[in-house]
Amino acid sequence: MTSPSPSSRKSLSKIACNRLQKELVEWELNPPAGFKHKVTDNLQRWVIEVNGAPGTLYAGETYQLQVDFPEHYPMEAPQVIFIPPAPLHPHIYSNGHICLDILYDSWSPAMTVSSICISILSMLSSSPAKQRPADNDRYVKNCRNGRSPKETRWWFHDDKV
């Protein structure tokens, strides 16, 4: 992608700041079902509580998503990870990184934090088994230096889960 280093460390541009304030207002009026934004004074990092949907493998379980916004949000995708312990899922690594195309190549400024949350919940809900990706150990080892999932070259070969 266009940003070689984690641009989330740079502070938000004016446009990004305005957009996020509007997203936050919209979220408070109309939060996606099953999610709770934990209020902090940090606009650039949102921590969101996820509740597994009833009737799915994750019913009754609670996880935490960490969303970091880059300087040029929404032209650039936010970085979204689960704060470990991450749910056991064939597309979620034990370090919290998520293999989901809209977080990387298929990101569009037309998406929102809320639409990302809905996609993640739907990914959880359609999981057939609680298991880690086959390459979990190798991948997590490669990320030990604190690499962002946005620097990973993802292969999205399975759209069933």
């Binding site: 446009i15 305005n18 957009r19 509007k22 997203e23 919209e26 929404p74 400024p109 037309a110 998406m111 929102t112």
Partner: peptide
């Protein structure tokens, strides 16, 4: 159904 804030800046 696009939220206004997603496109208004553009």
């Amino acid at each position: 159904g696009y939220p206004e804030f997603t496109f208004e800046d553009f």
